[in-house]
Simulated scan of single mutants.
Amino acid sequence: MNGPYYIADRCFRDLILANVALRKISTGHLWTEGPVWFAAHQCLLFSDIPNQKIYRWMCDGTVNIFRENSNFANGNTHDREGRLITCQHGTRSVTRTEHNGDITTLADQFDGKRLNAPNDVVVKSDGSVWFTDPTYGILSDYEGYKSTPEQTHRSVFRLDPQTGDISQVATDFTQPNGLAFSADETLLYVAESGASHDETVPAVIRVYDVDDDNMLQKGRDFTTLDKGIPDGFRVDCHGNIWTSAADGVHCFGPDGGLLGKILVPETVSNLTFGGPRGNELLITATTSVYAIHVNTASAIA
């Protein structure tokens, strides 16, 4: 098979396309992150954290600046009303960009103390906003402002959209990072990226049951990466996990077994599904953003 692939399981062949190439669609950045596809506008937004910019890539190949001063924006997603939700290291907050362009702060503290540095974020179908809060954005002045953590834990939080209340739903992480729901939202997957600064921490994606009260139960390891650490990832419509890694994008089946890899020449930070037909992986990787067509699509419409 042609293409930049490593095949660990034959069924991976059904998820990829033999005659496509990995395309570099934007480059010259410092550290790209937070890709989010807006189908209504046919565009990809992504962050360049150290440069404090959010960029916009259009399907015609045009790349322009969406936000000039992003406060070290990292993870991005959109809510069910099509509004941009962003994790900002600089303000140690989660924000929402309203349809008129105004920016609303959704969360910047818990239990009377400042958050560490919100990193990645997803929105559940009930409108609740779930985000991770590691310390990467306050470890140095490169991706934020160096500071001492105020939170006791590096946690996963849930924000109630009606009341604005914030709940701490998981604390058993060294550095929680990317997160994603299964298609039926009964499972939440969360990346443990603590090996970035402590090699004794396993490079795992954990999975939790989501109960009827939106609490997490029965946390356990889902899979372990063999190259680098998990950062951002997505779940496809078949229940497979596509995650960032040191050598590209790794694809794991619903049972946690490695199916295969898309090899990328830079360390991958994150990815999302998008493109006009929703069948492209849009990949943020160190200085560049890449795209490749696949034979699957996102679990979330």
Rank of each mutant, 00 (worst) to 15 (best):
Y5S: 03
I7D: 02
R10Y: 02
F12K: 03
S26Y: 06
T27V: 09
H29C: 06
L45G: 01
D48R: 01
P50Q: 05
W57S: 06
W57V: 10
E68S: 12
R80E: 12
C87G: 10
V94P: 01
I103L: 12
T105S: 09
K113I: 10
V129E: 02
D133I: 06
Y136M: 08
Y136I: 06
T148R: 13
R154T: 12
V156K: 00
R158V: 06
D160R: 03
P161N: 09
A170I: 03
D172L: 04
L187Y: 07
E192R: 03
D198V: 09
V207M: 08
V207Y: 02
V210A: 03
D212A: 15
N214C: 14
N214E: 15
M215V: 13
R220T: 11
D226R: 14
D226A: 13
D226G: 10
P230T: 09
P230H: 07
R234K: 15
V235D: 00
C237L: 05
G239Y: 07
N240P: 07
D247P: 01
C251M: 09
C251K: 03
G253F: 05
L258G: 04
L259T: 09
K261H: 08
P265D: 14
N270Q: 04
G278E: 01
S288I: 04
Y290T: 06
A291H: 02
H293L: 11
H293V: 02
N295D: 15
S298D: 14
A299H: 07
